Amino acid sequence: MRVLMVAALAMMMVGCASNVVTDYNTATVFGNYSSWAYAPMEKGSGFASLDDARVRSAVERELNRKAMKKVAKGDADLLVSWQIVSEERLEQTGVGLGFGFGSGNFGWGMAAPAPVREVTEGKLVLELVDQDSAEVVWRAASRRYLNENQSPETRRKLIDEVVSEMFSKYPPGLN
């Protein structure tokens, strides 16, 4: 019975874990912002090129839900900047093998480690920049990753979910 209770508690804790992390300037009055525009994208951010339309669509949908108006860059209160930060990780692709022999407290053994490969993944980072001060006032980063093995539909769904969760924490203090 205890094992079931511990398992249920662990599943509830995992279910409550957030997939995004946000940070913001505590001195900012977010109620003063009513319009936005995209900040100019940096050249050479090749990893994000195919996901550009997916991210833009998700951001526009979420900011419309917040009753924020998209305007020309010069008239905007906030500039929206985003990037997909690539990260490397190792992924196990098989199982390790080993064998040994011996008796009692003495023996010999050999083992080969599991094969691994390097995988490049991308973490979505969104920033809202105050147009007047040119300072970041709100930032959200995903804990879920895009990778090269995902289908276009999977990538779109993941981006939609992550951006929606990011903006569920905007403006800060209203959650």
Rank of each mutant, 00 (worst) to 15 (best):
S49G: 07
D132W: 07
R143K: 15
S57T: 09
V116K: 10
F99Q: 06
L78G: 01
K70H: 08
M1D: 04
F106S: 14
R156Y: 14
G122Q: 01
L90H: 12
E127R: 14
A114S: 08
K157R: 12
E127F: 02
M166T: 02
M41E: 09
A141W: 02
P115G: 08
M166P: 05
G46A: 15
M1C: 11
Q83A: 14
V136G: 02
A72Q: 11
R117D: 10
T28L: 03
S164K: 11
D75T: 05
L126I: 14
V162R: 05
L128Y: 03
A141C: 07
Y38T: 02
A58W: 00
P113A: 10
G31S: 11
E165K: 11
C16Q: 13
K66N: 08
N32F: 11
G102R: 01
G15E: 08
F30S: 01
A72I: 08
R144G: 06
Q92R: 10
E60C: 08
R155K: 13
A7V: 12
V59Q: 05
F30Y: 03
K123S: 13
S142C: 00
T154D: 13
A72T: 10
G44Y: 03
V20L: 08
R156H: 15
G96Y: 01
M110K: 10
E62F: 04
S164G: 15
V14H: 04
K43I: 14
L126G: 06
A141S: 14
F106V: 15
M12G: 13
E153G: 11
A7I: 13
G44I: 03
L90G: 10
L146F: 04
G109S: 08
R2G: 10
L128R: 00
S142A: 12
W82L: 06
K69L: 08
Y38G: 07
A7L: 14
T22W: 09
A76R: 06
N64H: 13
A48F: 09
L158Y: 00
E87L: 09
Y38C: 02
E153H: 09
Y170P: 01
G98N: 03
E135C: 05
V14Y: 12
A39E: 11
F47C: 11
F106P: 04
S164E: 12
E62K: 07
C16P: 05
S57G: 13
G46N: 12
A111E: 11
Y38H: 05
N32R: 13
L174I: 12
P152Y: 04
K69Y: 05
M41T: 12
A112S: 13
A27R: 14
A67V: 14
P113V: 07
W36G: 04
N19L: 09
A114K: 00
D75M: 07
L174S: 15
V55S: 06
G94F: 04
V136L: 02
D130V: 03
W108C: 09
R54C: 03
M11L: 15
V85C: 00
K70F: 01
